[in-house]
């Protein structure tokens, strides 16, 4: 089974999904993410899905669940780089991912996370172990 790498950058976790995900990979990613959020006290998670041409209802639900779980662990989640066809499919499936925030690309996504997380007085790297 493939494992999707999770990169840590300051108080953020970066995930770039470059392979077609099957359900087990997705569940493994969810487990790993939660573990890493707790271990690194991460405040934000950025998931890049620009390489995904197909997102089925299971992956869609996984993304929404992941965002909700991360929320419980006090981390914001941003999904970036969704393809137009994927967006249309998800909407047609009735999965608007209301709890998940989106951005067009990684840059915008990081801006979004920073604006949410970095209040005054919190310096970069504050959350490192």
């Amino acid at each position: 089974m493939q494992r999707i790498p999770i990169l840590k950058m300051g108080p953020y976790l970066l995930v770039s999904i470059q392979v077609d995900m099957d359900d087990r990979t997705a569940m493994a990613l969810q487990d790993d993410l939660m573990e890493q959020i707790v271990r690194h006290r991460a405040r934000g998670v950025l998931i890049d899905i620009s390489a995904l041409d197909v997102v089925d209802s299971f992956i869609g639900r996984m993304l929404a669940d992941t965002a909700a779980m991360a929320r419980v662990l006090d981390a914001d989640t941003v999904v970036v780089g969704m393809q137009p066809s994927v967006a249309i499919t998800l909407v047609e499936l009735g999965l608007a991912l209301t709890g998940v925030r989106s951005a067009l690309n990684i840059e915008r996504g990081m801006d979004l996370l920073r604006s949410r997380i970095e209040g005054p007085g919190i310096a970069d790297g504050h959350h490192e172990e």
Binding site: P84, A87, A96, S102, A103, N105
Partner: peptide, 12 residues
């Protein structure tokens, strides 16, 4: 609303 939801998923 569908169109709006899809655009939102794209980050707009």
């Amino acid at each position: 609303l569908k169109t709006v939801a899809a655009a939102r998923l794209m980050g707009a």
